[in-house]
Every structure is written in structure tokens, then in C-alpha cells.
Write a protein that binds this DNA or RNA. Structure first.
Ligand SMILES: [Mn+2]
Ligand SMILES: [Mn+2]
Ligand SMILES: [Mn+2]
Ligand SMILES: [Mn+2]
Lengths: 225, 225
DNA sequence: TTTAATTTTTAGGTTTGTCTAAAAAAATTA
DNA sequence: TAATTTTTTTAGACAAACCTAAAAATTAAA
């Protein structure tokens, strides 16, 4: 199988993320926004990816990955998350520093490398942001009963299990308030006018979280208080 | 400092290797041969690199690196050799498997990454092929009194200290005969008609080495026998 | 020191991935 | 349903890195 360009790989990865998280058929404009590119460039590339059999694409109707395209996307995500794990676990990077470097490392092409790395890291199941790491065969084990913090009702106790990985500012903010994976926190109050919320961290600090922040923290429900 | 393309980095690296190992001013054709490219392509790129201040280039007279160009080349070589060391020491790659992967990894752009890696590997001085690893400041400590095996007279005992790194076939050949870094061997006889030689390995095996092979093994003289 | 061979450069193209501006289709609103 | 707005595609260009073929400069041979 001939190897794809970095650009093509980034397109497939982004189509995968959008089609699992947001829309079934991925629109030209949503890709343009995520890839910091223009709609016309996206159209060009979608035609090429469709020719090569990586996506199904119908003019004006958006696209989705073929089985082949999806398996490639998953392997790139596997590499991305394994490298992030390496950087945090072995090289002592902070979780907010790894994404940018992993965006480069995910394109290194060597099966032996990535399998050896997986072994070296002891076959980790989740990356530093709580996201599942696909295995060699592309299987992804999603966690059960995870919800966005913003969906949780007041007077609930929850545990942080994942955070949106690609916002540097968010990760720094969480770091600053001692919020990380496995942190427990209590939802004190929700303010409907701006969808912000007030929470109490494990060590008693009360923190206001904006809508944006609360959307990007994923938690597991622990108890009613 | 804005970041160079992978292609530009490869040109600088190759100019560095050729101008230290072979010729003071690097010719268009020698670059074309090393970069598997055509002379006309080299000319184009040299003009660009000269514009950007990485090389001195005079039409028809070849080129050499500026101080800036050299410092960039050395940092790429540093990355290449650190990654090779990582692959062998941590991921259990064979020394013949690492060069191709390092050719990709050397272009990853993150100072923190490479310095952390250096630390993680315990500041190695030499890579798996015996080549010196430049430090953070670009200093390279070359070994004293190293010669090519082909230059050594019969009845000498020598120790292998480095091998040409980028020939897969050579490395596999050496591996097969148990020849590696720190191996001791005895030069038995030299055959002038094809410049081949006969040697005896530490464990007594007698092996014939072609000119090509004997040129690409670097040794330290130990004793006359 | 001419002539011949070799090396290097220029001229003119190609491919990949991008862009802007204009046209076409689809979705919304009236 | 007709008009308007939004989304998407097409048309035409551009920069990077490469190529082939032809011209020019340099080097080697006669
Ligand atoms: Mn990431
Ligand atoms: Mn992640
Ligand atoms: Mn190498
Ligand atoms: Mn090496």
C-alpha cells in the first residue's frame, strides 16, 4: 500500500473526528474550519481522496470515510496517542505540551516503530487526555457512561476521565486549578444565562467554569450529594 | 527563526556530510548523486539556499555552508543520531534498521523533545554506528586516530569503532559475521588486484572483505601481531 | 591551443496543495 | 413558491520541488 502525504493523512483524521463526534456526513465547510483552510481547497482534496477510494463523496452532500479510509485514520490516531503517552510518561512533558509535537510524530511511517513503542509503553489503553488508544488492529474501546461536564446536574459528584486535547489554553487552565484526570469534583450551581457553572475541586477550591470549558471536560458520574 | 522544509534540511545535511568527508566546495553533481536527484534540481535549490543565507554558492563553482547553515545541519544530525540511539537502546531495533526511520524522525521540530530525549538516553556520545552525537550547542567530538580498515597493514590487530551507517546491505553482512562495534579483528592478508582483504574475527572465523566493505569500516589500531 | 567531453545552468513543464473570485446549487425566509 | 442567503463547486493562479532537453561554461584530451 503506497503511502499517503501528510496532508492526506490530516484530512482523513479530521473527517474521522468530525464524523464520529459531530455529523454523519462531513460538510465541506466544517472541514475547512477544522483544517484552517478554504472550502475550495477542501473540495479539491475530497475529489482526490474519493478517486483514491478513501472517502465517499457526493457533490454538495459532504463525505464520509470508506472502510479503507477509516482504518488509515484510526492508525494515525493510534500513533498520535501513543506518542503523546510516550512524551508524558517517558519524557516528562506536561499534558498541555504534547499535542503539537504529536501532530508531527503521527506521520512517521514505520509499523515496527509504533508497535515497539506500544510495547515499550506497556500497551497503554488511554492517552494523557483520557482518550482511548486504538490497538494494532484498529479496535477502539470507548468508555461507558461518559458525559460532558456541562450536562451534569448540580449537587453531583463526578470524576474527570478525559479532556479536549487540542486546546492549549484549556489544558493550562485546568492545570492551574489542579484539575486533571481522575480529579473528583462537585457541581455546586449552574447559571442558565451563560451556561457557566460553579464547581468545588477535591481540595475545596471553588471555581467558575465557562460554557466552553464545561463542554470540554468529560466526566463519570459518581454520586448525588 | 522560521522553520525549513524537510527538503531544505536534507540538502543542508548532505552538503555538510560531503564538505567534511569529501570535498571542500561541494559540487552540483555530487549532491545530485547523494540526494537521488537531478543536477538541474540541485541548481534551483542551491540558488534558494544561497538567497536565504544558508550556503555560499558561486555559479559553476559549487557551494559550502555558511555558519548558520552549518549549525542547522549539525542540529539535524544531532536529532538523527539521538533517534537512532533511542531505537536501538530503548526499542530494541537492530543497528541496520534504524537509519531509514531516523531519516524521518530527524525532521521533527521541537527543541524540548530532543533535549528531553538526550536526557532520557543519558547523554550518549556515539550513535549505534559509532558516529559522534553533536551536543546541544553543536559541538562534535571526533575520535582520535581512527582509520578506514582498508588502510591497515596485514598482521595488525584492530578494534571496530564505527561503520558506514547508511548501507543496509553492509550492516546486515557485518551482523551475519558477528562483526559489530568493539569487535576485535586481525588483518591477515591484502589482495592488491581488487583491494580486498582477508581478516580473522575475534572468534576465529576467517572472512574475505571486498574493497567496498573495508572502506566502510572504521577501526582503531591495537597492536602488531 | 583547439577540439572534445563533462559539468552545470537555463528554459520550459508537471504535480501537489493552496488561494481568490465567480458561478452554481441548496437551504432559508418571506 | 419566489426571493434571498448560505454553502459548495469551478475557473484560473501561484509557490515548492521536481523533471527533461537544450544551451553555456568548465575541464580534459589531442
Ligand atoms: Mn493530541
Ligand atoms: Mn490526546
Ligand atoms: Mn543514520
Ligand atoms: Mn548513525
Amino acid at each position: 500500500m503506497k503511502t499517503l502525504s501528510q496532508t492526506e493523512e490530516n484530512y482523513l483524521k479530521e473527517i474521522f473526528h468530525l464524523s464520529t463526534a459531530v455529523e454523519d456526513r462531513v460538510s465541506t465547510n466544517s472541514l475547512a474550519a477544522r483544517l484552517n483552510s478554504k472550502a475550495s481547497s477542501i473540495t479539491d482534496m475530497l475529489q482526490k481522496l474519493a478517486d483514491k477510494g478513501f472517502v465517499e463523496y457526493v457533490k454538495y452532500k459532504g463525505c464520509f470515510l470508506t472502510e479503507l479510509g477509516e482504518s488509515i485514520a484510526i492508525q494515525i490516531i493510534r500513533k498520535h496517542r501513543l506518542w503523546e503517552t510516550f512524551l508524558v510518561n517517558k519524557l516528562n512533558f506536561g499534558w498541555e505540551e504534547v499535542h503539537a509535537v504529536a501532530e508531527q510524530l503521527e506521520h512517521i511511517d514505520s509499523l515496527k516503530l509504533i508497535d515497539s513503542l506500544d510495547h515499550f509503553l506497556n500497551y497503554p489503553k488511554f492517552d494523557p487526555h483520557g482518550d482511548p488508544i486504538p490497538d494494532k488492529n484498529g479496535n477502539i474501546v470507548y468508555r461507558e457512561s461518559i458525559l460532558q461536564l456541562i450536562e451534569v446536574a448540580p449537587n453531583s459528584l463526578v470524576e474527570v476521565v478525559a479532556v479536549s486535547e487540542d486546546s492549549l489554553a484549556l489544558l493550562k487552565f485546568l492545570e492551574q486549578h489542579g484539575l486533571r484526570l481522575e480529579s473528583e469534583l462537585e457541581i455546586l450551581e449552574k447559571y442558565p444565562f451563560d451556561e457557566s457553572m460553579r464547581i468545588r475541586s477535591a481540595k475545596g477550591e471553588e471555581i467558575n467554569l465557562s460554557k466552553k470549558v464545561a463542554e470540554n471536560i468529560r466526566v463519570k458520574f459518581l454520586a448525588k450529594i
